[in-house]
Amino acid sequence: MKILYFAWLRERLDRDGDEIDVPDDVSTVAELMDFLAERDEGFALATQKRQSIRAAVDEELVEHSASIRGARTVALFPPMTGG
């Protein structure tokens, strides 16, 4: 699965994405964030405030409870500040 990072999350992780094998029991955005935090301390630190991270699954904005099953791309990023 392709994971994308944007804005300050990208800067704090010092990379714009990861390509990872996600175990079968990781089925939601929230579980994916737990999984990423367990394998990478930097990710755990950068995403301590979970409510400040938003997500998109296959180019669709979603809540943390959304399923990631079968997804190709999950993007994680701070609240948006466009316009």
Binding site: F6, W8, L61, P78, M80, T81, G83
Partner: peptide
């Protein structure tokens, strides 16, 4: 469109001032 674009379109602003750069907070 403008109100919803501000919170739901994936753009992030970073401002540079004389003392450095900062991401704009939502």
């Amino acid at each position: 469109i403008m109100d919803t674009l501000k919170t739901d379109a994936p753009f992030w602003k970073k401002e540079r001032r004389a003392d450095g750069e900062d991401w704009v907070e939502a």
